[in-house]
Nucleic acid binder design. Structure first.
Lengths: 121, 121
DNA sequence: CGGTATCCTATATGATACTG
DNA sequence: CAGTATCATATAGGATACCG
C-alpha cells in the first residue's frame, strides 16, 4: 500500500491492504486457529510457496493485521495471530466462505472438489 | 476457475470466483448502482484498463455473478447488473468497505486520500 | 523449524490505436 | 458508446537450494 495513492472507494483501500491471491486465505486460517505456527499454516495452504508465504506474512505484519511472536527455543518456534483490525476481518471472511459454499451448491460448477480433511474449515 | 482444481478451503473457492484486483470493486459498484452502463463503470474505476474491464466483466458473466444486457440502439447501450449469487455478495463487500474506513481511521496510514466526489460510496 | 537467497516465469495488467 | 486488437511489461508468484 503506497501512502500517496489516490483511492476512489473504500473497498479499493481494503483490497490494497488484504487483497491478493493469498492474504485473505492466510488471515482466515490464522483466525480459525487463533494462534498458529509457520509450519501449520503452510500445511493449511499447501499450494503456497514458502518464499511467498513468508513475504505475505511480513506484509500483514507491517499492516498491523497480524502479530509475529518468536520464541527463543531450539528448534525455533514462531507463532502468528491476528491483532486488532485483523480480528474484525474474521467474520467477513467467514461470510465469504459461506458464500462460496452456497455458490458451489447452487451452480455446482463442475463438481468442485475439496480435500476431505480440509473441508471442515 | 478451473473445474478440476482441488480446493482446501471454501474461502479459496470464493476467491477463485470473485478474487483479484478488480472483480470485488466492479461487483461493488454494480451493486451500488443497481444497473450501470459500461462507461459509468469505467468512470467509477478510473484506473482500470478498458481491455481489463471488459475481460473481467465477461468472466463475471460466465460465473453468473452479473448479467449483461445489450440494447439495440445507436449509440449502443449495454447495461450490467448483479444476478443471484452476485447480489448476495453486496453486503459482504459493504462490510469490507466499512472495514477499510475503520482501518483508515484507526491506523491513519499516511493520510489516505480519497477523490472527493467518489468518497460517498 | 522457519525461514532466506537466487534465479526464473507466467499471468495479469497496461498503453495505445482502432472500429461497428 | 462500448468495446477489441495488438503489443508490451511488471509484478506476483514459483522452483530450488541452502542456512542458523
Amino acid at each position: 500500500m503506497a501512502d500517496n495513492k489516490l483511492y476512489y472507494c473504500n473497498v479499493e483501500l481494503s483490497l490494497d491492504i488484504i487483497g491478493g491471491k493469498w492474504k485473505p486465505l492466510i488471515i482466515h486460517h490464522i483466525g480459525g486457529a487463533g494462534v498458529i505456527r509457520y509450519g501449520e499454516l503452510k500445511r493449511k495452504v499447501p499450494n503456497i510457496n514458502e518464499r511467498v508465504l513468508s513475504r505475505q506474512l511480513r506484509e500483514l505484519e507491517e499492516s498491523k493485521i497480524i502479530q509475529r511472536t518468536v520464541y527463543d527455543e531450539v528448534p525455533p518456534r514462531v507463532e502468528y495471530s491476528l491483532i486488532e483490525m485483523g480480528k474484525t476481518l474474521v467474520p467477513i471472511l467467514n461470510e465469504l466462505g459461506l458464500w462460496g459454499i452456497e455458490y458451489n451448491q447452487k451452480y455446482n460448477h463442475g463438481e468442485i472438489h475439496f480435500e476431505d480433511e480440509y473441508n471442515n474449515l
